[in-house]
């Protein structure tokens, strides 16, 4: 998925202004130690430790936020990565979307790559009144469509946000489901429907 970009990484630290050479040394060293401390298992290959711009920029403690210029660069790059469906249809089947939102499997070294990944939305978001086992890392999405309506612009935003959350908010905790190949186009359509369809449990 992501390629190492050492030049960008260095540039970033200079631009970021928050990193002395020793900080950079430690970061480099930590990366080397990590490469030696993990082993490839199943689909989880070692190149998963190579960071892209968003990953390296959002890895600087103590906060996961970055300065305005870098945030703008990250958002611009990630916005350009969003691919909308060729058929122009953004809403799939919300019932299938509900199943995807419930499922937390996929991409772990213990998962069979032949099986479809889930979105695991409920791990972090409240989404419906009947599902009480929801997490709070992300905001509640209860009534998402009811509040925003179902316009073309809202559909594009919703689909785009699931495809690549960092296009809208650099260093967001949310995985970039389309950009990183976690979910398929059809699955993201189904999740968009789950959030926007008036009949979906999200909007009851």
């Amino acid at each position: 998925m992501t390629q190492p970009r050492p030049l960008l990484l260095v540039l970033l630290f200079v631009l970021g202004g928050c990193a002395t050479p020793t900080e950079l040394d430690i970061a480099k060293q930590a990366h080397e130690v990590m490469r030696a401390s993990f082993k490839e298992t199943g689909q989880a290959t070692l190149d998963r430790l190579n960071q892209d711009l968003a990953q390296s920029a959002c890895s600087i403690p103590p906060s996961t936020s970055v300065n305005k210029e870098i945030a703008a660069t990250i958002e611009k790059e990630n916005m350009a990565s969003i691919r909308y469906p060729a058929d122009g249809k953004l809403l799939g089947d919300w019932k299938s979307g509900e199943r995807i939102a419930q499922s937390g499997v996929g991409k772990q070294f213990s998962d069979d790559p032949k099986n479809a990944s889930g979105g695991n939305c409920y791990a972090c978001h409240q989404m419906s009144k009947q599902e009480i086992s929801f997490g709070t890392i992300g905001p509640s999405l209860l009534g998402f469509g009811k509040l925003r309506g179902n316009s073309e612009a809202i559909q594009r935003y919703t689909y785009g946000k699931i495809w690549n959350a960092q296009a809208y908010s650099a260093c967001s905790n949310m995985p970039r489901f389309g950009h990183n190949g976690i979910l398929t186009e059809a699955q993201i359509k189904d999740l968009t429907a789950l959030l926007l369809d008036p009949a979906s449990p999200v909007n009851q």
Binding site: I26, A30, Q51, K107, P175, R176, N180, G181
Partner: peptide, 17 residues
Amino acid sequence: RLGEKMFYFRGGPHDFA
């Protein structure tokens, strides 16, 4: 110090640290 860096290290298909 290395452990601290690793704690904040985002990576993988889900960008998780």
